[in-house]
């Protein structure tokens, strides 16, 4: 195995594009290094992107935020403007792993690892985040939701790297939230995750909404029925019940060591409802 730490993004793309196919991007390494310990892991090249200019920076622009692919999640909560704009996204990213893992793990890595249970992905999808990708053919920007295609698989072509995550500037009266269920209080992989992002009209009713579930299907589930239930409401009990029912209906999990189908379905509804209430409150809503 070869280790490279290129200084430019073009160089990184070249290295990956010309590799034998067993090449991996290293940002925080909190997933990659665990995989590397496996007896069956085979890598010929690891490209560390942390020396590339800008990869470690959070940039606030007129359109929103550009979060470099190597920004550790711990740095997100230290960025006051980002926390103010997207508290749910930051919360979700900060739920990944321990303090030690937070020092290293990145949202881009969380996305590219393509685990169905990734914590930051439902929140990013709810927030309409995009990924800026660079590859041998130049740059392209796609919705975060379109990056993972199946567990462990992404839509990135050979030689492509996520350069940055783009979060839009939230409109007035916007609130987002992410909740996950784990058996302990820390250190677990999400059994269910639920993210809600909504914006209120001037009259205090929900104008736009996105409800996204994680860990209950091979990829994140955007629950349009739950979002529809929220639209035009002030989050009455009935609305919340509808959100819950819609989330349960959209949940399509498996039985595994972390939870049962029955449990995940039920808790997806509970978390969807609770996340909606938090997002509504953050948007300034009053029931």
């Amino acid at each position: 195995m070869r280790y490279e730490s290129p200084a430019t993004i073009e160089n990184a793309v070249d290295l990956l594009a010309n590799s034998d196919g067993h090449a991996f991007v290293l940002a925080g390494g909190t997933d990659l290094l665990v995989r590397m310990k496996g007896d069956d892991f085979n890598a010929s090249l690891v490209v560390d992107i942390k020396s590339v200019d800008g990869m470690g920076q959070i940039e606030e622009t007129a359109d929103g935020f550009v979060i470099g692919a190597a920004v550790p999640c711990a740095a997100l909560s230290e960025h006051a403007a980002l926390v103010a704009a997207w508290p749910g996204v930051v919360e979700a990213a900060n739920l990944i792993g321990s303090t030690q893992v937070q020092s290293r793990c990145t949202m881009s890595g969380n996305l590219c690892n393509a685990s169905p249970a990734a914590d930051s992905v439902p929140a990013m999808v709810a927030a309409n985040a995009q990924a800026r990708i660079i590859g041998p053919d130049g740059r392209r920007t796609i919705d975060v939701a379109d990056v993972p295609t199946a567990p462990g698989q992404t839509s990135l072509a050979k030689g492509e790297i996520i350069e940055a995550i783009l979060l839009p500037k939230p409109g007035a009266r916007t609130g987002d939230a992410y909740l996950r269920f784990i058996p302990r209080t820390e250190m677990d992989i999400a059994v269910v995750g639920a993210a809600v992002n909504l914006t209120l009209d001037t009259d205090g009713t929900v104008q736009t909404a996105r409800v996204v579930l994680g860990a209950v299907a091979p990829s994140v589930v955007v629950v349009d029925a739950a979002a529809d239930a929220l639209l035009g409401s002030k989050l009455s009990e009935d609305t919340l019940k509808s959100v819950e029912v819609a989330c349960v209906a959209a949940s399509n999990p498996i039985d595994d060591k972390r939870g049962t189908v029955e449990f995940r379905n039920q808790v997806a509804g509970v978390l969807g409802r609770r996340a909606a209430a938090i997002a509504f409150e953050r948007a300034g809503g009053q029931s």
Partner: peptide
């Protein structure tokens, strides 16, 4: 656990080469 550039990390999840 060790501290790298002021942040606590698991040294089992850091490559030696990364510490340059």
């Amino acid at each position: 656990s060790t501290i790298m550039d002021g942040r606590v990390v698991c040294s089992c999840l850091v490559l030696g080469a990364e510490t340059q």
